[in-house]
Design a protein around this nucleic acid. Structure first.
Lengths: 159, 159
DNA sequence: TTCGCTGCAAAGGATTTGCATTCTA
DNA sequence: TAGAATGCAAATCCTTTGCAGCGAA
């Protein structure tokens, strides 16, 4: 069943990151909290620039280095996933903190963006991996298409 | 059914690129042929550096600029698809010239790489896109997992 | 007091661009 | 011959790193 994703729970995600940091003997500093807050803020994927801007609203002294270092940590800790949509710059989205896994559907005309979850896809992927002799640990699936708005789409990029 | 992909046919892919260039009022130059040859050579994805090296074997005077410009053209023309596997540098693979579409399965331990095609996946994706009000034009699906070789894998990166 | 963390600035790497020259239709 | 395409080098853009000072256990 295709449906809409559930957002991450702040407390849970916070706890998760803190636990990861502790496991690595690292500290859950003010800046790391701010970056975490910044990246969960939008509820969708953001690139480093956007995350920095958001973080700066909370503490303007934060710099790129801290943001990048924190993003790396959070990705390693399974709090964030890294996304790359064709040609665009690297971006990140929350996958920890009880946020449900989802895939993406992107309109190539206007950039409209839908996140969805489909259990059939998940099962099928398991079966495929198994058949090919792999133990599945993760996946990403991006669908590209044109949204219903078609030629009337206000954000349409090309005619 | 999961299976192995079919490689591109050189004549067909050549014709396809030439037709695209003609449509855009551009020329099918010697260098563009060489880059095309270079990227179809390996039969799998290659990054710009690898493509340049391959191209230089045919004509050592070719430079990065030409390679990048040509890759961009070929991607726009639907001859190549751009790939980004987590964190690694951008790479490209042939999707035109009658090469069959496929998805990827990557071992996160050793980098083992399998290309597969599964018609159930294709159908399912169509259904999902339709349900969400999109006309599907393309997709990519990457599965991550651990290959059978497990701890005995000679190329294993981490213990 | 120690060791990790931060911010700054500089370094690094990949990709793109400007320009004079060369090539192709 | 005109407009494109090329190769070089310089410029950009994104990301990482080095380092001195700051902060938390």
């Amino acid at each position: 069943m295709a449906g809409v994703e559930k957002g991450p729970d702040w407390d849970e995600i916070c706890k998760e990151f803190e636990a990861y940091l502790e496991r690595c003997g690292q500290r859950f500093t003010k800046q790391r909290q701010i970056v975490l807050k910044a990246v969960s803020f939008a509820g969708t994927h953001m690139d480093a620039e956007e995350i920095l801007q958001q973080a700066k609203k909370i503490d303007s002294s934060i710099g790129f280095a801290t943001v990048y270092r924190t993003l790396q940590l959070m990705t390693a800790g399974g709090i964030l996933a890294e996304l790359n949509f064709g040609g665009e710059r690297r971006s990140f989205e929350v996958v920890g903190g009880g946020s449900e896994h989802h895939d993406h559907l992107i309109c190539t005309d206007c950039g409209a963006f839908v996140e969805f979850f489909d259990s059939e896809v998940e099962e099928l992927q398991e079966r495929i991996a198994k058949k090919l002799g792999f133990t599945l640990t993760g996946h990403r699936m991006d669908l590209y298409g044109n949204c219903v708005r078609g030629e009337n789409c206000p954000r349409r990029r090309k005619q």
